[in-house]
Design a protein around this nucleic acid. Structure first.
Lengths: 197, 197, 197, 197
DNA sequence: TATGAATGAGTGTTCATTCAT
DNA sequence: CATGAATGAACACTCATTCAT
């Protein structure tokens, strides 16, 4: 109302419903997985009819792709300049986020569906994995510029060394180990110590 | 008569069919995921009727649990005594195995199904993840005994630091990066250097 | 706009299909029995997809319960005041109805399923057996009020004596014996003669 | 052993197994109904393999026909000469037998299967219904010979009048009504009183 | 003879999608 | 736009029956 922008005739699509559908779809994707969730469940959770979903997205894959595309990494904690503290904060925020949104199940779904619906994993990468890696890389580059770590260190490998223990712990059933982030940071900083060996 | 060896009556169960079913089930589990694969597909791939599957395993979950339970870590390369070389060999064997059996999709399925069929992830852990971690830990403990790494190092954290980069790389779309294993070993050995910092 | 009459949104449910499904279900229930009939058969007979059935009734038992619930005793012939004639008319209408709808098979199904799906027999009782018994009892009570039968006679026992021979004849393979109704009425009226013995 | 009668070569069929199978089949027929019972259940209950059943009876219908053919009415109580007491005793024995063997469910199954497997109802009639009717008829004929009931009375109709209330009561949910047998006998004897009306 | 393996047909039910209002 | 009806394909699982030992 009061909106004078050009728009197509007829009743405009409700953006509240758009959002409700996407939110419900994402939650079900994480909790039930791609194939086990049903559009009926999404419709019920979003309080719309199944047809309303199909009106917006042609297929189930389209809907879930859109739902994943709407995922955004939450704002990162502001850097303090202390390399060790900043890296640890990013890693702990990562772990907390994964836990909060049932992230390992979501990751599992995207991995399991990779052969069938590769967009899912691609989107997960683009929206969550790569942005977080960029944050970590940034801190590492600053540290390198300040001479805290070796100039020839491969930053991508270092980022994987920081994040990796989280996944490895989960696979081992050691999820939620306290101090993992600090340990990872210690190890990487020690390994890349500017003093070398 | 006189032969009292135990031999069960009736037609013996075909071990070829046993194997064909389990093989087909595992392949389909990795390529399609738990819910997307069907027992009809398994039956067709194993050249067997669906009932033949049900004769052996009561439910789909039973079959796939058995298929996963049959997965065994391939025999590890014999240790050479050279810590760096031994760790690298184990990690490279790990990566090769994962690639060979479409392992990330399998892992994804187990993660995605964790809420619904937790046996899958539990078995994957028991049969593949934990045995490999044990191998790595063994090498690390020998290194510690020889004074190559700090005596107070947490071996489990070190194992996660060795394996983790593989997962992190995969999630970042950097799978197959050559030298990842060596990099990880270097980092861990440098970080745990007996000399300390 | 301005028309606020309640009319539910979306495509209305076809009442022809409702009726066709219930009719087909009842016929198959009588001719094949509960377990031998299949929803596919109902769907085919009603010219409807199986899903259309499931849209209306969640389970097979629900459908057949509804089909039985839709059975209604046909309107009874109006009482003439002549006790003998009225009782005979009710009994003959009963026999005709049973024959028309393959009633003994239907009764058999309900009896056979009593342990597994007791609703069937309960509904058959409620919708057909008890209403007819009420009609008979009403005529008997009027006869008693007019002094035609003993005042201390148990009306329920008399009703069972009137209806019973039909079942007993059927079990003996003597179904369709002409005059059974008149015989039963004669016997009961003679036995309950006000004059006593 | 010691049996010198001619018999076919090979191991003779175990008659214990024959009996165990038939007994199990009959019990399951009464408790689950024709279509709901399975040959696996029979095999398990009789402690034989399914094949052992098929070796003796070609099909499920054959087996159940044989099982019903083995049913025999238990020996009737000896007649005392007292018409009223003898009729009542037969009816009460009937009701007790039906209750003991889950007879209404068995009757229901035979009725429900009449269109598909008419042998079942035919056998039930031949082995249980008609013999009992013969007993009742015999008592009635003696009563007629002694002049206790009218000579022109139709004995078959009278038999149906004696047995019928049991079925009618069951259908009305009034099963187990005490005194039903005495009531039925009273009614019939009163109605057929030699004195006429 | 007796067993257990093997099978093809069939079950009720679910679901993504399309259709009519 | 939004809804609920309708559908066809698919699913896991069961069963009477036949086959091989």
């Amino acid at each position: 109302m009061g909106d004078t922008e050009t728009r197509s005739a007829g009743r405009p699509r409700s953006t509240e419903k758009d959002a409700a559908i996407l939110r419900a779809a994402l939650e079900l994707l994480a909790s039930h997985g791609y194939t086990r969730m049903s559009l009926s469940q999404v419709a019920a959770a979003a309080q719309v009819s199944k047809s309303t979903i199909h009106l917006r997205w042609k297929t189930k894959a389209d809907l879930l792709t859109a739902a994943l595309a709407a995922v955004r990494m939450a704002d990162a904690p502001p850097p303090s300049g202390d390399t060790r503290a900043d890296l640890t904060a990013i890693l702990e925020d990562f772990a907390a986020t994964v836990e909060r949104v049932n992230g390992m199940a979501l990751i599992g779904t995207c991995l399991a569906e990779e052969a069938h619906t590769p967009e899912l994993l691609a989107l997960l990468r683009e929206r969550t994995v790569l942005p977080r890696r960029a944050l970590l890389r940034q801190v590492l580059e600053q540290a390198r510029d300040r001479g805290e770590i070796r100039p020839d260190a491969d930053p991508e490998a270092a980022v994987s060394a920081l994040l990796g223990p989280f996944y490895a712990d989960y696979m081992a059933g050691r999820s939620g180990r306290t101090g993992w982030a600090g340990d990872a940071v210690d190890l990487v900083l020690a390994g890349l110590d500017a003093a070398g060996r």
